[in-house]
């Protein structure tokens, strides 16, 4: 019994991405419940071995020329159809799978993805426009969820992305977000805490010189300021 074939069966039967750890556990449990010469070799496999089997399986698909592939996604692995067959598979679903997301929706989702957990007010501080409706939509689509409450005044709700987000966007994990290094770490302007409701000019609580910011001599714009454009 080849390990990769066992895993193939598991992946096929599972609708959600399977974590390597989960596969490991299942193999172990199977050996525990029904100890046979076939299950026992997989009793205590290392994660690397399982990963290797997953890779082998995908390689098999490639060499054999399958319509399927093994994709690492949302922290786990999943058997999925290959993109080039989308035209046909779409017919199952009466159209393309991805519903059109509006620009505000994607932007809001991106801000949440990079900065989670984050409160709505902080999202709005970045986007400069209210996001209530968009957040509600994202919640409803289960792309984000409530992560808890902030300790800030008012204890606003915090939002974070869900595994469904990773699945829908084909990400292995949050580190795979485009430009993750910078955007996950730069300090953002924060929303005003409720006590100082001077929404017009939110003070910058975080004075973090962004890289781009340093490109320019600090004093210079002030000098230019009086005659901006004549």
């Amino acid at each position: 019994m080849e390990l990769k074939l066992v895993i193939e069966a598991l992946l096929f039967a599972a609708e959600k991405p399977l974590l390597v750890k989960r596969i490991q556990t299942m193999l172990k449990d199977a050996a525990g419940c029904a100890p046979t010469p076939e299950t026992e070799p997989f009793h205590s496999l290392k994660e690397e071995e399982i990963r290797q089997a997953l890779t082998d399986l995908d390689t098999d698909y490639v060499t054999r020329g399958s319509g399927l592939m093994v994709q690492e996604i949302a922290e786990g692995f999943q058997i999925r159809t290959r993109p080039q067959y989308a035209v046909w598979v779409e017919q199952l679903f009466d159209g393309p799978k991805v519903s059109r997301m509006s620009q505000p929706a994607v932007e809001t989702l991106a801000i949440i993805a990079y900065r989670q957990p984050i409160s709505r007010a902080d999202i709005e501080a970045v986007r400069g426009v209210a996001v209530d409706g968009v957040v509600a939509t994202l919640l409803e689509r289960k792309l984000i969820r409530i992560a808890g409450r902030s300790e800030q005044p008012g204890r606003p709700l915090l939002y974070e992305t869900t595994p469904i987000f990773l699945e829908e966007f084909g990400l292995k994990n949050l580190n795979e977000l485009p430009n993750a290094d910078e955007l996950r770490t730069i300090e953002l302007r924060r929303a005003n805490p409720p006590e100082t409701p001077t929404a017009e000019q939110p003070p910058l609580f975080n004075e973090n010189p962004e890289p781009a910011q340093e490109d320019r001599p600090v004093g210079q714009p002030a000098a230019d300021a009086p005659q901006p454009e004549s």
């Binding site: 592939m69 058997i79 993109p83 080039q84 989308a86 199952l92």
Partner: peptide, 8 residues
């Protein structure tokens, strides 16, 4: 891109 692949 991801929208072009389907899981079972």
């Amino acid at each position: 891109e991801q929208g072009k692949t389907y899981q079972r």
